[in-house]
Design a protein around this nucleic acid. Structure first.
Lengths: 337, 337
DNA sequence: TTGAAAGCGCTAACAA
DNA sequence: TTGTTAGCGCTTTCAA
């Protein structure tokens, strides 16, 4: 135990062969006679040889590793995306290393540097809430490492993207509220510096406008993506006068905060206030009443994003024309509206 | 773009220094004059130099990477464990690569081989449901790579472990059922080849025995860890005669399957049948009625397991004395019992 | 204080 | 068919 790991040289020495011969034999190179190959393979097995992919990567100047950076993996959505991406990577014998930014731009930058240093073949990223500039991502591109954004994208940078139809999904759910007869519809919006925050807000406003309902600034409150932000948002609405008929939250956690706070204050959902979210988290179906929301297909997003990234890795040539894949959403109507 | 990444040699050439001098300067080696260091650092910055950790790893014969293998990351418990582990690793500037076995022993073996090939410094693992032998793990140890099991351990192998007090937790929740007056208490057990399946079943039997309630074989049904296994278990109980008073499930997803199926069949929880789980998944508090369960601290488990692993990595010397850390559990009583 | 040489494990190109 | 040489980017040891 704790003995140095066995290398091609160890095998070569024991077989009185040159180590390059062993190397070729192990990779089933046509040069080598099948008799030799068998001897080599047998001894490799016996000695418990494991090829050193670090050395291989150094030699090949490339790794078979995809980096993934997400705000957190403790989140239905991101963990499903990662699963999807990993699945695709696995089929191509690529590894996946996952980093969490914890919504911190600084930590995201560290992750980025680490991935560059590890010479990953490509990076999938959903940007942190506090990230304001795309300069860190440009560093990746300067190193020739392809980059695919998913879900939360960075606008000031040219790169492939996989996003859900945030504007459309938001519009759809707000239209649903309008159809149900709600008239003063508030929006617990996300951080305005995030793409999904902006887009979902735009969808909300689009829907109102399309139905001749003026969007009133006082019915929009910006916050983060957590449950606590929902609680805070409700407080803000309350302080601004009478309660709205309905509230559309930027995502399900925020909706959950609102949902809980409304119930806590003795009001009834949806009779007094209707609530809708975005994202269709696992939990949302179990709330009482269950939450109306918009489903995005995270597993699919992961698969598509990884496939896109692998395509870029395969053909680094036409680096210029960036694609944006928009994944359609689905309105999930439940009892909260 | 797509230009070769810059190396110490590039910096050296531009500065008319030897590349080893640059290497030392970058690492702030005392040999080098501060004037030179500054020039090197400045140019490194300007040229966007990123050290190649692959080369470094090859040279040092070691990486700063921890491998983590879990059945799936789409699971509260495992994703929280990973978060905890990553946190500890991050503080020590270690990377974390996460692999999913999807509960398949074969895929787990592939992950193990990959991690060995990538010469990770250590491995954290919670074994797949279908893994029967520990031989794959022994391969790791033969390579001198330390291994820490968490939650689902492998008994026929000597290694560090971090487990929750499965026996105690199960006993505690079953005792709670007995105290509430339930008498025929069934157990939807896990796969008998998993450590947690066996231990939770043992805790269940211990509690019954301690209170003079004979464990009857017909009240134990073995299955997997998924919601569907709960549905199946309830079917099995039903076919064996009248319903039990209470059912203790090996984990929360299984309890959820049972919970839903009981409601579907028109019975009331806990009046007709009480249900308890294990694990305190996020969802469980939101069921109607909310699920009584046992909380294990996954984030803590991850932190402790990673710390244990790092200690082993730091001091590979006393490889023999293996520790087992048992994390206490907490009974969470809710309305389902 | 800086430079030179060697080597980590592997592969590719070429030579025998 | 097998062997030789060189080099990937870095660090370590020793020499200048």
């Amino acid at each position: 135990m704790a003995t140095r790991q066995v290398t091609v040289k160890d095998i070569a020495r024991r077989l009185r062969l040159h180590y390059t011969t062993v190397s070729k034999a192990l990779r089933d190179h046509p040069d080598i006679s099948s008799a030799t190959k068998q001897r080599v393979l047998a001894l490799a097995e016996e000695l418990d040889y494991h090829p050193n992919s670090i050395a291989k990567s150094l030699k090949n100047q490339s790794t078979c590793t995809l980096g993934v950076i997400v705000p957190t993996i403790k989140n239905d959505f991101f963990s499903a995306v990662i699963s999807g991406a990993e699945e695709v990577a696995y089929d191509r014998e690529f590894n996946t290393v996952v980093c969490q930014s914890n919504e911190s731009a600084e930590r995201e930058a560290v992750a980025l540097r680490t991935l560059i240093s590890n010479r990953v073949a490509g990076v999938l990223i959903s940007v942190a809430q506090t990230t304001t500039s795309g300069s860190g991502f440009r560093a990746l591109q300067r190193q020739g490492i392809p980059l695919v954004f998913f879900d939360r994208v960075c606008d000031d940078i040219e790169a492939d993207r996989v996003v859900v139809d945030d504007v459309g999904g938001a519009r759809r759910v707000v239209e649903h509220l309008i159809e149900r007869g709600y008239r003063t519809i508030a929006h617990a919006a996300g951080p305005p510096n995030t793409s999904i925050g902006r887009d979902r807000c735009r969808g909300y406003l689009d829907a109102l406008r399309a139905h001749g309902l003026d969007g009133d600034e006082k019915w929009i409150v910006h916050g983060g993506f957590e449950e606590a932000d929902g609680t805070a948002a409700l407080g803000a609405f309350r302080s601004r006068g009478p309660m709205p008929d309905a509230i559309f939250a930027v995502n399900d956690p925020v909706a959950r905060g609102i949902h809980a706070e409304i119930k806590r204050s003795g009001l009834t959902i949806p009779r007094d206030v209707a609530v809708a979210g975005f994202g269709d988290n696992r939990l949302s179906a179990y709330l009482d009443p269950p939450l109306t929301t918009v489903s995005q297909s995270p597993y699919e997003i992961g698969k598509i994003a990884a496939a896109m990234l692998l395509r870029r890795i395969d053909e680094p040539s036409h680096q210029c024309l960036c694609e944006t894949e928009v994944i359609p959403t689905q309105l999930i109507v439940r009892k909260s509206t």
